[in-house]
Design a protein around this nucleic acid. Structure first.
Lengths: 204, 204, 204, 204
DNA sequence: CCCTAAACGAGACGGTACGTCACGTCTTGGT
DNA sequence: ACCAAGACGTGACGTACCGTCTCGTTTAGGG
C-alpha cells in the first residue's frame, strides 16, 4: 500500500522538481497541471501521485529544494539594527517587485490559502526559517539595548514583513526602495527604546 | 458582441449573486463552480458568462453587493486615536479569526493572486473603501496633532493592516484580542508624535 | 395567438428564403441554423418561428419558391419514348452529379428522413410534380402501345428514378451519361411490350 | 495524439455499442446524444471521443457489430432466379415497412447524406456486403443463362434495390408484398434473356 | 390622416448538448 | 518492484443553438 521509499527513483524525483520550477518560471501557477509536470519530466503521472498528495506538495518540495540549493541566507549583524533591517527589507521588496521572482511566492500563497495542510507545511519549511533570521537579529538587538524590551519579537517581525506582502498582494502602491526605507523608518520608530512604550495615562 | 445592459434581467442578476453567497456560505470557494451557481440560481450558464468574465468576477460582485447592502461602516472618531484604532483592528482580527467569515476573504485573495485584472477590481471596489475609512481617521488625527506629520498615510494604514493579514494567511500565530492590542500598541509607537522621526545620526 | 397573415412583411419573407438558399449553397445543410438564417436575412428569430414550424419547413418553402421561379419544366414528347426518357434521366443524373446542385436535394432528403410531417409536404409539393411529368409521358406511351399495358405507372417511374437516387446517395458508382443510358436501356427492356410479361410457366 | 489501440478496454467498447443499440431501439436517432450513450454505457464521454470521430461512426460500428453477430445471411440459390429474388426483395420490403426495423436504416442514411467520410464507411461496411450477395446470385444466374449477358451486374442490383428505397424514403406508395412482387416482375422483364437487348433501329 | 395594434429587429433568457481539459485511479508492458 | 505511458470514469469548462420571451420601433389598416 505505502510505497517503499528505499526503491524510489532519484532520477524521477529530480526530474519532477526541475520540471515544476521550469513550468512555474515559464507559465505561472495557473497552468501548472500534474499532467504538464509529468509530461515535462518524462515521468508517469502515477509516479507523482505515489510520492506527493497533490500539486501544492510538489511545488512546495520544489521550492524548498531550490531554497536549500541557494544555501542559507544569513542576516548581517553590523551592530546597526536599522541598517541591517534596511538590507533585508530592501531585498524582500526587490524580490516582490520582480514578477519573475515573485511568481513562486504567488504560487505558494495561493496554495497556502487553499489548503490548511499545505499552509502548515509551508509555514514550517519555507517561511519560518526566513522569519527566524530576522527574529534572531531582533533578539540580538534587544540584548544590545537597541529594542524596547517589552515588544513581542514575532509581532515585530510581522510589523516589518506584513505591510510589504500586503502591498504586493493587493497592489495598493509601488514596491520601491523608497517604500522599503519608509517601512524601516516606521518600524524603527515603533521598536526603538527612546519612545515610551505606553504613555497612555495622560498624554495629550 | 457586447450584450445590451439595458435589457438585462434584474431577476437573474439577483438570483445569481444570491446563489453565489449561499454557496460560498455552504461549501466554500473550492466547490463554487459556474454550473453550481447557474443551477442554484435557476439560470442558464450563458447568462453568467454573458455578464461576467469568470468565477472571480461574479464572486466579487456578490460580495460588493453584500457590503453595499450592509451600508457604509464608518470609523468612530472619539478624539482618542488609539482607542478608535483599537476598535477597527479588533474587529478585523475577529473577522479573520472566524473561519466562516474569513472564507470569502480567502476566496477573494486567491483570485487576486491569480488574476491581475481581478486584483485591480478587488482593490478598487472592496479594499480601498475599507482602507480609506482608516486613512481618513488618520488624516483627522494628523490635523489634531496626534500623528507625526511626516508619515505617509498609506504606509501607516498598511502598517496596521498588513501584519494582521500576514498572520492570518500564514497562520504564524493566534488571532486574539491581545494580539490586536499588540498591533495597535506597536503602530501607535510608530505614529505618535513624541518620537523624533529619524534620529539616525548618533542613535543613543 | 395565430399571426395575421395579412400584415406579414413580404420583405422579411423574401429575405429569409433568399438567406436559406444562399447559406445552403455556401455551407451545406448541417451549418444551416435558424440563427444563421435570421442573421443573414437581417431578421429577428421570432419572425421565422412566427411563420414556420421549424428549419425543414423554411428550407422546403425556399426550394419550392426556387423551383417555381425556374418555371415548370415539361418533358418532351417526341413520340420516341426511349429518346424522351433518355433526356430526363440524363438531366437528373447530371444534376445529382453536380455537388452544387445536389446540395439542396441532399438537404431535403435529410429532412424527409427526419420528419414524417416534412416528408409528406416534400412529397406533395416538390417530388410529385416532377414524378408526374414522367408518369404522364409513360401514360401517353401506353396509349401509343409503346408500353406493356399491365405495368403500374408509379412503379415504372420509380424503376427509372430509384436506382439513380440510390447510387447518388450511397456513392456506389459513377453518375455519368453512360450510366444514365444504361438505366434507360434496362428500364426500356422492362417496359417495352414485345417481351411477354410473365412467361413463368415453363421458361427454361 | 493517436490513442494506443492495444490498451483499449474491450469492456468499454462493448458497453458503448450495446448502449447505442438499446437507445436506438428505445428513442430513435434524433435523441441519440453522445452524453446519453456515455451515461447509459457507464463510460466517460472522452472514451467515446477517443475512439470514434462522432455519433455517426459509433452508430455504424454498433450496427456492423450487430449484423456480424447475426451471422452472414446468404441468398438462396434454388436455380429459379425469379423465386430467389422474390425472397430477398420481399424481405427488404418487409424490413423497410416495419418502422422499428427501418429506424436504424433511416439514421444511417441521414448520416450518409451528411458526411462523405461516413458515406464511404457506410457503403463499404454495411451496404456492399448486402448488395454483393444479390450480385453473386445474379452472376451465377448469368452463368446459367438466365440473364442477358450484356447487363451490368451493379446496375441490375440497383434496379432491384433502388426503387424500394426510393419509395420507402419518399413515402410515395405502400410497401407491401404485392409491391415487392411487382418490383421483381419488372426487374425480371428487364433482365431475362428472351428480350433483345437493344432492338432500337426499327422498333416495330 | 391619424391612431393603434400587429409585426418586426434585436437579443436576453432557461436549457441541452457539444467537444475539450485535467483530475486522480487503474492497467499494461518494459527494464 | 518501480516505472513510463496512457486509458479510464468523472465532472467542469466555455460555446453554440434551441425555441420562448420581452423590449422598443416601424408600419399598415380601420376609424
Amino acid at each position: 500500500m505505502m510505497p517503499n521509499a528505499a526503491r524510489r527513483s532519484e532520477r524521477s524525483r529530480t526530474a519532477i522538481l526541475d520540471a515544476v520550477l521550469a513550468l512555474l518560471r515559464e507559465s505561472g501557477y495557473a497552468d501548472l497541471t500534474i499532467e504538464a509536470i509529468a509530461s515535462r519530466a518524462g515521468v508517469g503521472k502515477q509516479t507523482i501521485y505515489r510520492w506527493w498528495p497533490g500539486r501544492g506538495a510538489v511545488v512546495l518540495d520544489a521550492l524548498v529544494e531550490q531554497a536549500a540549493a541557494a544555501g542559507p541566507q544569513a542576516l548581517p549583524d553590523t551592530g546597526d539594527l536599522e541598517a541591517d533591517l534596511r538590507v533585508v527589507v530592501r531585498a524582500i521588496v526587490a524580490e516582490l517587485a520582480d514578477p519573475r521572482l515573485s511568481a513562486t511566492t504567488r504560487a505558494l500563497t495561493i496554495e497556502t490559502l487553499s489548503s490548511e495542510a499545505f499552509a502548515d507545511q509551508m509555514r514550517d519549511r519555507m517561511l519560518r526559517p526566513q522569519l527566524d533570521t530576522v527574529k534572531d537579529r531582533l533578539r540580538s538587538a534587544r540584548e544590545a539595548g537597541d529594542l524596547r524590551p517589552e515588544v513581542d519579537l514575532d509581532q515585530a517581525v510581522e510589523l516589518l514583513i506584513g505591510p510589504m506582502y500586503h502591498r504586493w498582494m493587493m497592489r495598493t502602491g509601488p514596491l520601491t526602495e523608497e517604500y522599503a526605507d519608509g517601512i524601516v523608518d516606521l518600524a524603527m520608530a515603533a521598536l526603538r527604546p527612546g519612545t515610551a512604550g505606553k504613555p497612555r495615562p495622560g498624554t495629550a
